[in-house]
Nucleic acid binder design. Structure first.
Length: 115
DNA sequence: GCGTTGACGAGGA
DNA sequence: GTCCTCGCCAACG
């Protein structure tokens, strides 16, 4: 059913899911990977975000953090404070690069979306 | 074509 | 609870 192009689908899906993250919500790389059916390929999700810089699509990567709620990828933004600033703008409290009440802002595509 | 790296996660000790 | 190891997929040298 699916050809080798399936691999590329993974990338496109990542951007799609990230773009679907509601305002003021965050999710984890693993959650996205799991939603795509890869589960353990969380690293590839991060890699996709890296490629997102090359794309002109507005990918709210600042809403994607690791499972610890740490802004691990903030350094990949224009400035390290961009990510924190954007999250703060959306009502997400970030202290020491860590999201406070992470679970409260956590948004799981598997629970909110339907495949 | 091979080896290493990378914005991660889960499991085992 | 922490620390270490493996897996996963794509890009880069």
């Amino acid at each position: 059913m699916k050809d080798k192009r399936d691999n590329r689908d993974f990338f496109e899906k990542v951007f799609a899911v990230v773009s679907l993250i509601p305002y003021g919500k965050v999710t984890s790389y693993g959650a996205i990977a799991r939603y795509l059916g890869s589960g353990s390929s969380a690293r590839t999700v991060g890699w996709a975000m890296n490629m997102a810089h090359s794309l002109e699509d507005a990918v709210p990567a600042h809403r994607v953090v690791n499972r610890n709620g740490l802004l691990t990828g903030k350094h990949h933004f224009e400035t390290p404070e961009t990510m924190e600033k954007l999250l703060a703008s959306e009502g997400v409290v970030v202290v020491n690069d860590a999201i406070q009440n992470f679970q409260q802002h956590y948004w799981d595509p598997n629970l909110s979306l339907v495949i």
